[in-house]
Design a protein around this nucleic acid. Structure first.
Length: 736
RNA sequence: GCGCGCGUAGCUCAGUUGGUUAGAGUACUUGCUCGACACGCAAGGGGUCGGAGGUUCGAAUCCUCCCGCGCGCACCA
């Protein structure tokens, strides 16, 4: 490629082709970087989902990471930025199911194996799109080390981790009321649900002598007790007694008029009942409410009735009157029935937060089911201790609080999911568990084994045969191993030796607990070392109006469109320009204009400088010229000063301020002032050649400093016009 | 309910431990096509720094309260 400085700056002509040069050089691979490079710098990329296409959040994260990686590379570090993609269990499965639906297919019609074939085919087809998009941003990751969280080796790592926990006795199987998404047909952890405030109704229902309030009257069919606060004097006389109440008879067919039925229900005392709220009486529905389940654990004598099925419809046990109705339909029906029978005292309007699936938005149905759990107390302790001791630094520090708050009140992690796409649990089991329900933790040893210990394919207790668990692991269980599993763990690889622990992890605040915390305790547990030294939590990109960018809301901005319109470097400029710290960014198109103008400025300043030296060869700019005039002294000193500030800013992950400082120097000090005075200086034969050297020196070194931010234009100019030790700017050393 | 963050020029944002006429980008006004660049240069208009108190010789910067916006967490029956 030949640069034509007689033409105005055109990003299309300049940027294309640069990326290929870098890839061909091999410099993204730390082992192929020139020079001695004793110091090592490592980052792992937060692996994007294979379902995804690049959004502004990615563009921000990867641009900042890339700037850091390039800076460190130039600083002489053996720099590894390890890329990958995530299989993203539920998200990907949903995407493929949607695709199938277009053909009128449903995953159960295909069966597990066929369905997984479809997912792999889908991954082949779409999984690389995001990689291409990353490349068009200029991401300097080592693609030769690209990993996928469902690679063969990675699957081994996940199984190894599971077995490790299993042998420690930290994995158990239990029957619990968990968050259930009836659309995805799987359990979800607490971190995988989102609350939305919704208008609802609050129903006051007569229970014999008592009245209680509830937002979910349909779960009344699964009530097995009433609870009051032990200190509540109003209800003291009922505690421990069974009371007789009139209730709706669920055995009357739906077509017929509702009838009353007399049932008995026990009143228990439990601190979970708040005397201040409602009437102070609550119904206990352990199978469909997580808080009620916890009450049940304190009162195991209370029976459990499951009246809602995994499909989100009322079950057999709800009685023929309600059976098969969707939850909301059943609610309508039972309210109507109770009204007719005079059981409903009053209805109030109220607002409350309703849980939804974070992947598909369906309302969460708490549901009793058998799941696998990982005990968290010891792991949480490790994670807290190491951050408290400062082994891992959070930037900005305030995010530590979010991390500590979660870990301090940690609950055991529900790690099983009832989907097909993911890491299948390496356990062989029979269903249901034959140990009697105790409410506590089930001793599952007799009911499940991991493969290696499976010499007796029958349960010692009930003699039932074993089969491999149908469940897969929570996606985050495998992501938690990323910093070391991506480097080859559990094998003892050279990479693991060289590159673990990593230096910096950069990501959005939304996954501090979902991912970062889990990497921290996993790293400590399996490697005995923290997975990264610094967690840099970057801003979230919002719309100009301050809304969340989202495809479904139509508020998203596609970075690829911006790149097509403004070019890669201009988009990077706009991102970094606005990345002023942890503060959220209200995306402003003005920054793109500023970027465009700045690139034009660089181009034209270069044109001027090169017009001063007609050397046909590549120009040497390594020699530091001696300043002669006052203007010479000023520009040389200013360059030194600003270079130092940039380094300091970058070391503390202040990308925006770093860029702005140098923008100011380059535009005003160098172009507006020195370039202008140089025009006079070159008239003087005594100053002419030295002035030329200063122009070259400042320009060449400015391109170096701007390279982490604007890699394409700087590389294009420098690698063509300047004599570089390794032919490319990317492998040059940072100015001294 | 608890916690966190934010409210500074029309718009998007800086403003490091309190200290001279509060800055940048963008937009706007005027002049300038002089051999890097009109995606430019030079000059300029525009802010009682959300509000009210307080500390101080001095506060956008520290303290208290209030108002507005955003986010996170909570056993929300």
């Amino acid at each position: 490629m030949k640069l034509d400085f007689s033409q105005p700056y055109d990003f299309k002509k300049i940027e294309d082709g640069i990326y290929r040069k870098w890839e061909e050089s091999g410099y993204f691979n730390p082992d192929k970087l020139p020079g001695k490079r004793k110091k090592v710098f490592t980052m792992v990329m937060a692996p994007p989902n294979i379902t995804g296409s690049l959004h502004m959040g990615h563009a921000l994260e990867y641009t900042l990471s890339d700037a850091l990686a390039r800076y460190k590379r130039m600083q002489g570090y053996k720099t590894l930025w390890l890329p990958g993609t995530d299989h993203a269990g539920i998200a990907t499965q949903n995407a493929v199911e949607k695709e199938l639906k277009k053909e009128g297919l449903f995953r159960h019609q295909l069966g597990r194996e066929k369905f997984l074939e479809k997912v792999w085919a889908w991954r082949e087809k779409y999984g690389h799109i995001i990689i291409q998009q990353l490349k068009s941003l200029g991401v300097s990751a080592d693609w030769s080390r690209l990993r996928f969280t469902m690679d063969q080796d990675y699957q081994k790592a996940v199984a190894e981790a599971f077995i490790h926990y299993y042998e420690k006795g930290w994995i158990y199987r239990g029957e619990r009321t968990i968050n259930w998404c009836s659309r995805c047909a799987t359990s979800l952890s607490d971190l995988e649900i989102e609350y939305k405030e919704e208008d609802g109704k609050f129903y006051y229902i007569k229970y014999g002598p008592l009245t209680l309030g509830t937002a979910r009257p349909e779960t009344k069919l699964g009530d097995t007790a009433l609870a009051v606060n032990p200190k509540d004097k109003r209800y003291k006389k009922y505690v421990g007694k069974e009371i007789e109440i009139q209730s709706v008879d669920p055995s009357i067919p739906r077509e017929a008029e509702p009838k009353l039925k007399t049932i008995k229900i026990k009143v228990i005392a439990d601190p979970a009942a708040d005397p201040e709220f409602g009437t102070g009486v609550i119904k206990v529905t352990p199978a469909h409410d997580i808080a009620d389940f916890e009450i049940w654990q304190r009162h195991p004598e209370v029976p459990i009735t499951q009246v809602i099925g995994p499909n989100g419809r009322m079950s057999e046990k709800a009685g023929i009157r309600y059976r098969d109705l969707k939850v909301v339909e059943a609610r309508k029906q039972i309210v109507e029935d109770m009204q007719k029978l005079g059981l409903l005292e009053k209805i109030e309007e109220y607002k409350h937060n309703v849980a939804h699936c974070y992947r598909c938005g369906t309302m969460i149905e708490p549901m009793l089911s058998q799941q696998w759990f990982l005990k968290m107390p010891e792991l949480a302790k490790l994670a807290i201790y190491n951050v408290k001791k400062g082994k891992i630094k959070f930037h900005p520090k305030r995010w530590e609080k979010v991390y500590f708050d979660w870990l301090k009140n940690i609950k055991d992690w529900c790690i099983s999911r009832q989907i097909w796409w993911g890491h299948r649990l390496p356990v062989w089991q029979h269903d249901p568990i034959c140990i009697p329900k105790s409410g506590g933790e089930n001793n599952f040893e007799d009911c499940a084994l991991w493969q290696a210990s499976l010499n007796e394919p029958k349960c010692r207790k009930c003699l039932a045969g074993f089969h491999q668990s149908e469940d897969v692991l929570d996606t985050w269980f495998s992501s938690a191993l990323w910093p070391f599993a991506a480097l080859g763990w559990p094998m003892k690889t050279g990479d693991l030796d060289k590159f673990y622990p990593t230096d910096v992890l950069m990501n959005d605040r939304g996954i501090i607990n979902l991912w970062d915390a889990r990497m921290i305790f996993s790293g400590l547990e399996f490697m005995g070392k923290i997975p990264f030294r610094v967690l840099s939590v970057h801003a979230t990109v919002l719309t100009r109006e301050g809304q969340r960018m989202s495809k479904s809301l139509g508020t998203g901005i596609d970075p690829m469109e911006l790149i097509a319109k403004y070019g890669r470097d201009a988009v990077r400029f706009a991102i970094i320009w606005q990345a002023m710290g942890g503060q959220d960014i209200r995306w402003s198109e003005d920054a793109l204009i500023a970027g465009k103008k700045f690139l034009n400025k660089i181009w034209n300043a270069s044109r001027f400088v090169f017009s001063q030296s007609q050397s046909p060869d590549k120009i040497d700019f390594a020699q530091k010229p001696r300043p002669q005039t006052n203007d010479d002294k000023k520009i040389m000193a200013n360059f030194q000063k600003n270079k130092k500030i940039i380094s300091r800013r970058l070391e503390s992950y202040e990308f925006g301020p770093a860029l702005r400082v140098f923008y100011d120097f380059f535009w005003h000090d160098f172009c507006d002032q020195y370039l202008e005075s140089s025009k006079k200086q070159v008239q003087d034969p005594k100053l002419k050649s030295n002035t030329g050297r200063i122009l070259i020196y400042i320009l060449g070194n400015s391109l170096k400093i701007l390279h982490p931010f604007l890699p394409h234009i700087t590389e294009a100019i420098a690698s063509e016009k300047f004599g570089l030790k390794n032919n490319l700017l990317i492998a040059e050393s940072w100015p001294r």
